[in-house]
Nucleic acid binder design. Structure first.
Lengths: 215, 215, 215, 215
DNA sequence: CATGAATGAGACTTCATTCAT
DNA sequence: CATGAATGAAGTCTCATTCAT
């Protein structure tokens, strides 16, 4: 997988000094960003949390920006990797989709949600980050697209639309629902929403209710 | 309408000095935030764009935070107002929904999208802003809920779900699709996506295809 | 005279905020540079000496570099201006030259010497500064050239060389002697050196001893 | 020669570790100083140029200051040594002087010129460096003084001045002309200047034109 | 002999804010 | 009503230096 990333050209140019400790600190950077936000994450914050001197952070990552970007990148990267391995290959296409959607709606993934929000926000003004984002997004979409294609071929799904566009809408739902989850809006009812999303998906792919409601 | 806002308790405490000019500058603040982002909008930026001295901005708005919050609030407020008047009262429930969704998907509303992203992002860390957000969000949802309720009563919609939850999902879609629109991801195809969203909505409300496909 | 400078294109682009106080501080910057050297002059040093906050210095001058360059420029500029008015117009060419040389050898002009050394040193690596230096140098040379030309025309000087080149050598002497003066080398004997320089000059211009030895 | 230096008391206290490699690096330090200037020469610069780790440089030279001073010292020292052996002992006094002056005016010695400028500049604030400088300067002057004394004794020169003072002025010229050379001022014409300097010198020592103009 | 890791001191710079006018 | 002057707080960054290997 790493090879793929390298090949994508987004691998960070300089892997600066530091071994395990650097890796550990990087995790902490992610945590701090999730808590304080990208723009408000200072060297000092990370230094406090990690117990590492500010100058050491610079030694590890170069500049503040570099540190933040690497953490953001790494965080999203891992989410995508997790998604890519979130279902068993032998599952039916529908089961795979259900697993993917459930992961996308997972109410426990608060940090992931916050990091995504940070990523979108930061990308909106940073072309380079946006490029990375486009690449990661494409990988995020792929498992969905694959599952739908498999279902269509297998005959269990039927749809007049391009699976790509279906996934665009489906991801739209999953990403859009991150907002009320992260902001903890109280009109957001996990169970009911999940049911409706599943039914919607079933409708889009013309899957019988009996199959779809067991999730 | 203003009364409503006042009643909500979110009206800014001090309506500071400055008449028309203040109003004009406020627009410019919105523009600057949309372009540079909330956190990166400095007094100096607004001063440059508006040609007003920094100290005058402070005179108008109080602190930087006050200025930003007011601009954010105002911007979202206006979007909500626009939404609330985006359909003719005599329209059928389905027509109303279509109008609302079309507004939500409007590819021209780049600035609105960016401001929403800013709002979500800022809200994630500011409880007060989040409270305002919850209130605005509720108002944003209301026209959708009303339309669905009207359709159900009128007999043109049928659904086992609580209209509130349906709207949660529907808004999820609309908000989620803001992301690829703002970030200009190229997998986002307006027309196809619109069609799928409409069909999804029709499916959820058990509206016959013939009606739904005319939009 | 100021017009001339403006016309030369070297006038500093932004005359930043601050009135008299700024001017006063600028003097102090010069003093600090003369004492500590260009590269070692920090905002903090000037702040301490002038009693002005560091941030105010930035407010006045922009950046550290801008502050230093302006001080350097101003300092040399003034020396040139002083030189240009160091003799009475009605003096004989020889008297004018003597006045110019005496000013160049003035043992009291320690600060000027140090600033010149700073200027040369800084110019060696800063093309922009070097351009300013070339311009100032030209103006520095002019009075010497004028005096020699006047003497030649008047018949009191005779030389086979281009006055420009004579001045190059003459200025070489004056500038070269700044070194032992500034470094306080003890082999430097003001009176003897002055006499030799004058005699040298007299020799170059074929002026009779009787005239030259009265200085 | 080395003995002489030791005797002078300026030998660097600790001749630190590192054999040939150290020597090679020292050359590179000189080059870096000539290019970047004394104050702006960092360990990192030398490390980059030499391919030696920063910590190794410290191991070689001690502190940054030590490294810079040693390089400066070495550089000037070598120039002096070169000067001391720049003429053949059997030459006539005038020939010796001409050789010395020609070396002083050598337009190819850009690095030497820059290093001298660095030395003067650094000396202006560092008493210890100034002491070294005074010693080196004295040695620099000696060959000139010797030549003049020899000429006077031999009867080919005649002067009412102390040869020491004549050398002060002569060196003043040579050093002063380094400035336009290093700064590449375009009014500096090597050939014409050389001729004038030679004639000046001939005048000071009462040497007949016929002898002096052959250089 | 040589080096990488880690760090503290010190500098510049940005920016919101206060104050006098 | 509006502004310029002045400043303190806070952050990033550079760099020499110490230490363990």
């Amino acid at each position: 997988m790493d090879t793929k990333v390298e090949a994508s050209g987004f691998a960070l140019s300089r892997r600066r000094a530091g071994g395990e400790r650097r890796e550990k600190v990087l995790r902490q950077v992610i945590a701090v960003i999730a808590e304080r936000g990208y723009d408000r994450t200072r060297f000092a914050d990370v230094a406090t949390v990690s117990g590492v001197a500010v100058s050491t952070l610079q030694f590890y990552f170069g500049s503040r920006e570099d540190m933040l970007v690497e953490a953001l990148h790494r965080s999203i990267e891992e989410e995508v990797l997790a998604l890519e391995s979130s279902y068993r290959p032998e599952s039916s296409p529908w089961e795979r989709l259900v697993a993917l959607v459930d992961r996308g709606l997972d109410p426990a993934a608060q940090i992931t949600g916050k990091m995504l929000l940070e990523f979108w926000h930061a990308s909106a003004r940073d072309p380079q980050l946006r490029a990375v984002g486009a690449y990661l997004c494409q990988r995020y979409r792929q498992p969905f697209i694959d599952a739908i294609r498999a279902g269509v071929e297998h005959g269990s799904f039927r749809t007049a639309d391009d699976p790509e566009d279906v996934v665009t809408v489906l991801n739209g739902i999953l990403e859009g629902l991150i907002i009320p989850r992260v902001l903890e809006h109280d009109y957001y009812h996990v169970q009911q929403v999940r049911k409706i999303v599943m039914r919607t998906l079933a409708g889009l792919l013309d899957v019988s209710e009996s199959v779809s409601t067991d999730g």
